[in-house]
Amino acid sequence: MTDSKEASNKAYWSANVRLIIITLCIWATVSYGFGMLLRPWLMGIHIGGADMGFWFAQQGSIYTFVVLIFFYAWKMNRLDKKFGLEE
């Protein structure tokens, strides 16, 4: 493996790890944060007939998870192209 190739691979991997960390931060915030631990402080905010924490625990987190996975896939597939790593 040439040095430039190695450097490019390193950059690709750290970009991936960074993206994973961002994704998982959002993942944890909506489910464990809004849906669970922060719920008592969010009681005042309502989504329809539900308080925000309840809604995130039973509905909102799932929608966010779906968006997150597609966001990750889209970003990674672009990253593959940028680094010329497409299959």
Partner: peptide, 19 residues
């Protein structure tokens, strides 16, 4: 609400799986 864990757990695992 107390059993929301099942809903969150059985969907949220896919984010881990995907990334």
């Amino acid at each position: 609400y107390v059993n929301s864990s099942f809903i969150l757990g059985w969907t949220g695992g896919y984010v881990l799986l995907a990334t």
